[in-house]
C-alpha cells in the first residue's frame, strides 16, 4: 500500500509540475506576445502620429515653442518613438542647456532595470518618462506602476532628483532617481 502512495504521489506531483510548466510557457508566450503587441501599438500610435510628432520635434529643434507644447502632450503617449530621433540631436547641442530629451543611465536592481528620460525645455524639466521600470514579476510591475506617476509629479514639482522615495517602492524609487540624476547631469541641469 505504501507503494501505491509513493507511485500516486510521484505521478500527481509530476503531472502538476508539468501542467504548471506548460502553462508557464504559455504565459511567457502571451506575455512576450503582449509585449510585442503593445510595442506594436506604441509603434502604431507613433506612426499614426508620426507625421505630427516628427514634425513637432523637428520644429522644436529649430526653436519654436507653441507647437512643441502640443508635441510634448502627444509625446507623453508615444515618447518611445520620439526619443530615438530627438535624443541624438540635443546631445550635440547639450552644452547650451538647449531643450531636448535626455536618457538617464540604466540602473540595475534586484527587481529589474530602471531607466528614465527627461524632456528639457529652456532649462526646465517638462516631462519625465520611464523607459524601463522594475518588472521582474507581477508584483514588481504593480509596484512600478504605482510609483512611477508619483515620482514623475514629484520630480516635475521639485525640478530635481532631490525628492522623497515612495513608501513600499524604495528600490524602484532609488533606481529611478539615480537614473534621473544621470539624465540631469547629461542635460547640465
Amino acid at each position: 500500500m505504501r507503494i501505491r502512495a509513493a507511485v500516486s504521489a510521484a505521478l500527481a506531483s509530476a503531472g502538476i509540475l508539468l501542467a504548471g510548466w506548460q502553462s508557464g510557457i504559455h504565459v511567457e508566450d502571451t506575455r512576450s506576445a503582449a509585449a510585442s503587441t503593445s510595442a506594436g501599438t506604441n509603434g502604431a500610435t507613433g506612426t499614426t502620429g508620426a507625421t505630427g510628432t516628427n514634425g513637432a520635434t523637428g520644429s522644436s529643434s529649430s526653436g519654436s515653442g507653441s507647437t512643441d507644447t502640443g508635441a510634448s502632450d502627444t509625446g507623453s503617449s508615444g515618447a518611445a518613438g520620439t526619443d530615438s530621433g530627438a535624443a541624438a540631436e540635443p546631445t550635440t547641442g547639450a552644452a547650451a542647456k538647449a531643450g531636448g530629451t535626455y536618457a538617464g543611465s540604466v540602473v540595475q536592481t534586484r527587481f529589474g532595470a530602471v531607466q528614465v528620460q527627461i524632456t528639457v525645455k529652456a532649462g526646465a524639466i517638462t516631462d519625465v518618462e520611464a523607459l524601463q521600470l522594475t518588472d521582474d514579476d507581477r508584483k514588481s510591475i504593480q509596484i512600478s506602476n504605482r510609483a512611477a506617476p508619483l515620482l514623475r509629479s514629484e520630480v516635475l514639482a521639485a525640478q530635481s532628483a532631490d525628492v522623497q522615495t515612495i513608501g513600499g517602492a524604495t528600490v524602484t524609487s532609488v533606481a529611478y532617481l539615480n537614473s534621473l540624476q544621470a539624465a540631469l547631469d547629461a542635460a547640465n541641469l
Binding site: 502538476i16 509540475l17 504548471g20 510548466w21 508557464g24 511567457e28 507581477r138
Partner: peptide, 13 residues
Amino acid sequence: AAAVALWLADGGT
C-alpha cells in the same frame, strides 16, 4: 508540487 507549479505557471521559467 502545486506550490512550485503555480509559480511556474505564473511565468517563473
